[in-house]
Design a protein around this nucleic acid. Structure first.
Lengths: 133, 133
DNA sequence: TATTTACCTATTGACATAGTAGGCAAAAGG
DNA sequence: CCTTTTGCCTACTATGTCAATAGGTAAATA
């Protein structure tokens, strides 16, 4: 399951895309609009800055801002950053091709096919595709 | 993520399909072939019996058996039974359309589209599709 | 009656999730 | 310079799930 981290991150990105006028947007505003605990969002947004999705600025007039244009972000990269992996089975996550049964496993091909489908889905969607309404 | 419950259940089903000669197959044999703890499999197989995927028989000559032909099982029904849901976001699981933001949520349509894709994928695959090798 | 099998209840350690709490640091306005 | 606003940092916690293990009882057959 996609956790709140991934889902909230996506909503933060969309909120920032919608309210992008060149200025930094305070987290307080985002939290209020999105009805998410500001304290919890701090954790999430920190990871987003570390992952290069956003930039933050302290002090008055500070807040967060996108570093690219909305159409240059894919949903896939956002979710993968926040969730750690998009893989749906442990044997495929983070290059863990260590299962001793992988040669004879009858289910592995299906998981690989599934993984590819999921990645294609999320990496072909941009922020703009979601915002367009 | 798909848990061991779902993945092991699938392997049990495939094992039973492969060794189906009309007789009951003891769990001990399945556990040995699949290299999975028999004790843990007991829990899993119990749910599979409760869900109507298998029948069990006690005593000598007992074990487990499929109740349908392999091509009449979809991967989707097996996974959904074991995992509880196939939904990837909490807002869509078990008919929980209770989110107060669902009218205005910009991400909901994408999750719905994703859910449909996942369901179509798993429900269009049968045990036979996996066994064919 | 002994053996083989399923079936039942309970417990556990490890880890992740979804937060909360309280403070420090930086930047801007007055 | 001082106050306010904002981000940023460390720590803590309650709850739940996952992946098992342990130890028994019941049923069926030879």
């Amino acid at each position: 399951m996609i956790t709140t981290k991934g889902r909230y991150a996506l909503r933060v990105m969309l909120d920032l895309a919608e309210h992008a006028d060149g200025n930094f947007v305070p987290l307080k505003d985002i939290a209020e609009r999105q009805e998410i605990s500001k304290k919890y969002l701090e954790i999430i947004v920190k990871d987003m800055v570390a992952g290069g999705l956003l930039v933050g600025a302290s002090g008055k007039g500070g807040g967060y801002k996108l570093v690219r244009k909305p159409e240059e972000y894919t949903v896939g990269e956002i979710l993968e950053l926040m969730e750690g992996t998009l893989s749906s089975v442990a044997c495929l996550a983070e290059g863990k091709n260590t299962c001793p049964r992988r040669k004879s496993c009858q289910t592995l091909p299906m998981w690989e096919e599934y993984d590819k489908m999921v990645r294609d889905f999320f990496y072909s969607k941009t922020l703009c595709d979601l915002a367009a309404k």
